[in-house]
């Protein structure tokens, strides 16, 4: 058991608990994007930053991957944290402005401007789908490829993977395309994401690019007919 202080409140948690879990246990909200219960922590989106230690030696860490330590002092909403968080959201918004999940987070955290060039990426490389496929679906059909700016997610050789069971888990967790494939039922779509991106999902030749590994995509097939 370790005891740590979060926003001035002492809490004792089991060894190995992450700061995020401890803070949520106390009810302090920390936004997350690449974190999901049941999947291993990955620390890709940096949205869950918190400040640890005492000023002036404090620093920012990702709470989803940082394990609680004895005597750790954590602040989840200091001005430094808020500043970093807003910047991260602004950057995420720039790379994937069509994502409903990111839009919602941005508005929740009062991000009122977006000063960077919009990229309209299909993927923010949060790795949720990769972990979903491996850890929950036991398939390992998709994974990271390449590195640096060429890093992408997909199946080996960009062809339909023999391991994929078309469970749709990857699409379910994806914050960038979560709602795209409801296009066939526009009423159900909250944001109509797939219809709004340009060019729309269903006229793209390669659904692979859309982070849709279900080849052929059921929804898109309906549209094409």
């Amino acid at each position: 058991m370790v005891t740590l202080t979060i926003n001035g409140v002492e809490v004792t948690v089991e060894d190995g608990t992450t700061v995020l879990e401890a803070a949520r246990f106390l009810g302090f909200p920390i936004p997350t994007l690449c974190h999901m219960e049941g999947l291993s922590p990955y620390g890709a989106c940096r949205l869950c930053v918190v400040e640890i230690g005492q000023e002036p030696k404090s620093r920012l860490v990702t709470s989803c991957t940082y394990r609680a330590e004895e005597g750790l002092i954590v602040r989840t909403a200091s001005s430094q944290v808020m500043k970093a968080r807003m910047m991260i959201l602004e950057l995420l918004l720039a790379s994937c402005p069509q994502s409903k999940v990111i839009q919602d987070l941005a508005s929740k955290f009062q991000v009122r401007q977006q000063r960077f060039r919009q990229e309209h990426e299909d993927c923010i490389l949060c790795g949720l789908c990769v972990r979903m496929c491996e850890e929950q679906m036991m398939a390992k059909a998709i994974g990271f490829r390449g590195r640096g700016e060429k890093r992408s997610i997909g199946t080996p050789f960009d062809i339909r993977s023999e391991q994929c069971r078309l469970c749709g888990g990857c699409m379910y967790v994806c914050p960038a395309c979560q709602l795209r494939c409801t296009y066939a039922e526009p009423d159900k779509a909250i944001c109509g994401g797939c219809a709004n991106i340009h060019p729309p999902c269903y006229i793209k030749e390669q659904f692979d690019d859309m982070m849709c590994y279900m080849d052929p995509c059921v929804a898109c097939e309906i549209i094409k007919k």
Partner: peptide, 8 residues
């Protein structure tokens, strides 16, 4: 090993 890892 999985093909995904090797390809990665």
């Amino acid at each position: 090993r999985s093909l995904v890892d090797i390809y990665g």
